[in-house]
Simulated scan of single mutants.
Amino acid sequence: MSEFPGERRQFSRAKIDLPVEIHQGGSVWHQRLIDISVAGISTDQPDVWDAQYNEPFTLIIDAGRYGALELHAYLQHVEAQRLGFAVQHVDRNNVEPLRSLLSEHVSDPVALEADIEKLDRQE
């Protein structure tokens, strides 16, 4: 069950604490990942957050042995000291590392594979 009322998540999420850089234009914020799915990411909120909400972001997640994941996203919400991003694009170089990372942290591997299939259909 979600900690945030009204959330309607369609993809399996994994709570993972990893470093993430949020890039927009010439700005970079160094944050922490809260959770991740194939379609969304939550991070903690920077103390100074002066981003352009309607412009895209690039999120670079330090995924340890899986390398750096680069995901392109738009900000969906800011609440309870966290940022919620909708992933707009996962390029082919990032799909397998994302799958491997998530597979270690989700409880339902069948649901994860269904999520990956949905992602493949979006490309």
Rank of each mutant, 00 (worst) to 15 (best):
M1Q: 09
S2E: 15
S2M: 08
E3G: 12
F4R: 03
F4K: 02
E7S: 00
R8V: 02
R8F: 03
R9C: 08
F11C: 05
R13E: 00
K15H: 13
K15F: 09
I16D: 11
I16Y: 01
L18F: 15
P19L: 05
V20T: 13
V20M: 09
I22P: 00
I22L: 15
I22S: 12
S27N: 13
S27G: 06
V28S: 03
W29M: 04
W29C: 01
W29F: 12
H30V: 04
H30D: 12
R32N: 12
L33T: 02
L33Y: 07
D35H: 07
A39R: 01
I41M: 02
S42F: 04
T43Q: 06
T43I: 08
D44E: 07
D44A: 02
Q45Y: 08
Q45I: 05
P46N: 11
P46F: 08
W49E: 03
W49R: 04
D50K: 05
A51F: 14
A51R: 02
Q52A: 09
Q52D: 15
N54W: 08
N54A: 12
P56V: 05
L59K: 10
L59C: 02
L59N: 12
I60T: 14
I60L: 07
I60R: 14
I61E: 05
I61V: 14
D62K: 02
A63R: 07
G64S: 09
R65V: 09
G67D: 09
G67E: 11
G67Y: 09
G67C: 10
G67Q: 09
L69C: 04
L69H: 06
E70Y: 04
H72I: 08
Y74S: 13
Y74Q: 14
L75F: 05
L75G: 07
L75P: 01
L75Q: 05
Q76Y: 04
H77K: 07
V78K: 03
V78A: 08
V78D: 15
E79D: 14
A80R: 14
Q81E: 15
Q81F: 12
R82W: 03
L83H: 06
G84F: 05
A86D: 03
V87E: 00
V87Y: 00
V90Q: 00
D91Q: 01
D91V: 00
R92S: 14
N93S: 13
N93H: 10
N93Y: 07
V95G: 04
V95A: 06
E96N: 00
E96F: 12
L98S: 09
L98G: 13
S100G: 12
S100N: 15
L101P: 12
L102M: 11
E104F: 10
E104W: 01
E104N: 14
D108K: 04
D108P: 06
P109V: 10
P109E: 04
V110M: 11
A111W: 06
A111I: 06
A111D: 13
L112P: 14
E113Y: 01
E113G: 00
D115W: 04
E117T: 11
E117W: 07
K118L: 15
K118R: 15
L119S: 11
L119C: 09
R121F: 11
R121L: 14
E123H: 14
E123Q: 15
E123T: 11
